[in-house]
Nucleic acid binder design. Structure first.
Length: 753
DNA sequence: TTCAATCGTCTTTTT
DNA sequence: GACGATTGAA
């Protein structure tokens, strides 16, 4: 949609032996090297906006064109379905129909599923194993935690899920978890619960996302003959976004590449922003060691941003220590400098952005070419409110996705149980949705029995319904539900799947449940269900559709009308816009306090890479904003400008008044609190800035620190003026201000009066 | 079993 | 301040 434009390239197959294929002429020298270095390991270090996608798709086309491999002998892996789709489409543009033969082009997960289904029995699974989503995972872990009488409050299932996920990312089986880490959860039960979880999955004939990779890896590790057959098959391998790979993925790739060693990894260490979900920058940093004889090809010519923007971003990222180092350059004009503006609070920030956008719009700029990138979701509301007030159209990119909505998951669960009645996880999900009076008690009776006789839930229920074990209304409705599923399954052969799905949703009472729901979200949910049925029509069968939703959790959202793009910084990776607004560059917000607290120096460097990613999204204009005051979790706090602002090179930055610029930055060193008194923002502002940081505020708020203020005291706040203390909760004060109403404020921001 | 009140949390997110 | 999840009472 907003990716670099793609000038039509001639159909390679149609270019007969006239020296070299025409598509090579489209490339610059470094891209061309990346395309033509085909033998042995290659690391393509592709900086932001350097034509990476073109280089890698052309490389694949070149391999095919020169007859070095046939389409099905190439393994091409991406992280997201979107990336896989785009790659396929672009290669198709070069080689035409032949792209359909590339059956090994896809996400890590999709390719692993394919391999795993073929050899499921070797992994102790049946080939129709189900893939659990995150909801199911948590539900399962909750059961395990409950079964061990662990306090769910202190040890939430989410945390265990995170832990296990982390282990799987690092390719650790329960037995391989280090002794220290294994102690981490619930007083030493971490690894034990991990093991129980895996056993449970096996007995359910299910895997989670992490397992897809791990089981596939294990398959290769324990079956050399099988591994060899895949090694032989994949004459060439290509990996996109290599900086995002985790340990398991790295091991998987390295195993597969052992034979031909023709592996090309494409990535940019400076754009590694997913460390928190297991990505190892080290993978890309160590490439030469891991793949001996590797060649590194740097793409450093930037085709996207104008001079000042590129220079600002490049300089910023040099503050990172762990990087391979690239020097991006452009032949473009310097263009506009990066504009920096300090504002009073978030409200003013939103107003400034909206005003500026209106001005751009007035000058004929398309809203589609404008983006606002925020660090975290909570920053969006204020900006959206302003857009709405001004009547500016916007779209939020990367919000909750279609297949993750509750009603969609419920509906799919019904379909999955219809197809496979032994799918316990899904049955549990919907057994009492809508309410059938089959509550926790009845469900427990059934599952206890099911475990005792080692049968799936549905079969256990079938038997129990005939006994007196289950009493009251639960018994009848359970019997009905079983009969319903039997009937629906019988219809599956004769009824078109879309029709069947509609019938199931109606007869189960699920549609009715939302029709009777008076919450404002209900109509939208019904709408989504309709859309789901519509989407199913594009698939041949119910089974095919279900496999699709298990792996492809995204839907194409059409970029139809002209709208501002609002999204998180993470969601912006890979996109580009003429104008980019970057609000909230304040210590604690960006870099985010938790990144600093939890991962220290590495976290800071990742935040800095995020800054780099954001800036390099801008083609012509970048505007950074920081507010002096911000409300975080309903608490007003004074904020310091982000340290990243200090790290921008002065000669590429423009501010409202050059003076203010230097002064503000000189004062804002987060780790050097010993600076002179500032002048902007009034005396209260200067005082607060001298003594407080957001970090201090967080600690005070979190630690329940005591305050030395007393109830009823008259105080002064630099933003809200005079007021009287009405309530004290640790360091949090509720103050009735004379002019501005009652607010909650940290004690550190008011003074006695 | 259901509903209402209370509690705790509040970064980023793909498969 | 807002949301979801959990808990306790009817």
């Amino acid at each position: 949609m907003i990716r670099d434009s793609d000038p039509h390239m001639p159909d390679a197959a149609g270019a007969p032996g006239a020296g070299e294929p025409a598509y090579l002429a489209q490339l610059n020298e470094e891209q061309r090297r990346a395309v033509e270095c085909l033998d042995g390991p290659v690391l393509m270090l592709a900086g932001a906006g350097t034509g990476k996608t073109r280089a890698l798709t052309t490389r694949l086309a070149h391999i095919l064109y020169t007859g070095r491999a046939r389409p099905w002998e190439i393994l091409a892996v991406t992280f997201t379905n979107k990336a896989a789709r785009e790659m396929k489409q672009r290669i198709g543009g070069l080689i035409g129909e032949a792209v359909e033969g590339m059956q090994w082009l896809g996400t890590f997960h999709a390719i692993c599923v394919k391999i795993l289904r073929r050899h499921a029995e070797l992994a102790g699974l049946k080939s129709d194993f189900t893939i659990l989503d995150t909801d199911d995972q948590i539900r399962l872990m909750k059961q395990l935690i409950k079964a061990r009488d662990i306090d769910e409050k202190r040890w939430p299932a989410r945390q265990l899920a995170g832990l296990i996920d982390g282990w799987k990312n690092r390719a650790l089986t329960p037995g391989q978890v280090g002794p220290e880490e294994a102690q981490e959860f619930a007083g030493g039960l971490g690894a034990k619960l991990y093991q129980e979880y895996q056993q449970r999955l096996k007995s359910l004939n299910a895997v989670d996302f992490g397992d897809l990779l791990l089981e596939c890896l294990r398959l290769f590790q324990t079956h050399p003959d099988l591994l060899e057959s895949y090694q032989l098959r994949f004459a060439y391998m290509l990996v996109d976004e290599y900086q995002d790979t985790n340990v398991a993925q790295y091991l998987w790739l390295r195993l597969l590449a052992q034979r031909h060693k023709n592996i090309c990894c494409v990535g940019d260490d400076d754009q590694s922003i997913y460390g928190w979900r297991g990505a190892e920058v080290t993978n890309i940093l160590r490439f030469e060691k891991d793949f001996p004889g590797a060649r590194i090809i740097r793409l450093e010519r930037n085709y996207r941003s104008t001079g000042h923007i590129l220079a600002a971003a490049s300089h910023l990222i040099t503050h990172n220590e762990s990087r391979l180092g690239k020097t991006l350059h452009t032949t473009d004009a310097p263009g506009e400098k990066v504009f920096l503006q300090g504002v009073w609070d978030g409200e003013e920030e939103a107003r400034v952005i909206a005003d500026e956008i209106e001005a751009l719009q007035g000058k004929g700029h398309s809203l589609n070419e404008i983006a606002v990138l925020v660090r975290a979701g909570f920053q969006m509301r204020e900006i959206e409110d302003r857009f709405i007030a001004r009547g500016l159209d916007y779209r939020v990119i990367g919000g909750p996705r279609f297949y993750e909505r509750m009603e969609i998951r419920d509906a799919i669960a019904y379909l999955q149980v219809t197809v496979n009645p032994d799918n316990d996880i899904k049955l549990e999900r919907i057994i009492n949705t809508p309410s059938r009076k089959i509550g926790a008690a009845s469900l427990q009776t059934v599952s206890r029995y099911a475990r005792a006789v080692d049968l799936p839930l549905m079969q256990a229920a079938r038997q129990l319904v005939e006994t007196d074990e289950i009493r009251g209304p639960a018994r009848g409705s359970l019997r009905n539900l079983i009969a319903d599923f039997d009937r629906w399954r019988a219809l599956a052969d004769t009824t078109p799947h879309t029709e069947l799905a509609g019938l199931i949703l109606d007869e189960s009472g699920y549609t009715a449940m939302w029709q009777n729901d008076k919450s404002p979200a209900a109509p939208g949910r019904l709408e989504n269900l309709k859309e789901l049925l519509g989407a199913m029509g594009e698939f041949e069968s119910l089974a095919e559709f279900l496999e699709h939703v298990a792996l492809v959790m995204d839907t194409d959202s059409s970029a139809d009308s002209d709208k501002i793009n609002l999204m998180t910084m993470h969601a912006a990776k890979g996109l580009e816009f003429d104008s980019v607004f970057l609000p909230g560059w304040e210590e604690g917000v960006f870099p985010h306090q938790r990144a600093l607290d939890e991962t220290g120096r590495a976290g800071l460097e990742e935040e800095r890479r995020l800054a780099y990613v954001c800036l390099t999204r801008a083609k012509k204009r970048a505007r950074i904003l920081h507010a002096a005051n911000r409300r975080i979790h309903a608490l007003w706090q004074t904020a310091l400008p982000s340290r990243f602002i200090n790290e921008l090179p002065e000669e590429h930055i423009e501010t409202e008044s050059g003076e203010l610029h230097r002064q503000t930055f000189g004062l804002s060193r987060f780790d050097a609190p010993d600076f002179a008194t500032g002048s902007g923002g009034g005396p209260g502002f200067a005082r607060a800035r001298r003594n407080r940081t957001i970090s201090a505020g967080y600690q005070a708020a979190a630690g329940g620190a005591k305050t030395d203020f007393t109830l009823g005291e008259r105080v002064f706040h630099m933003k809200f003026g005079y007021g009287r203390i009405e309530e004290i909760d640790g360091a949090k004060l509720t103050i009735a201000f004379e002019k501005t109403g009652t607010k909650k404020v940290l004690d550190s921001f008011v003074e006695r009066h």
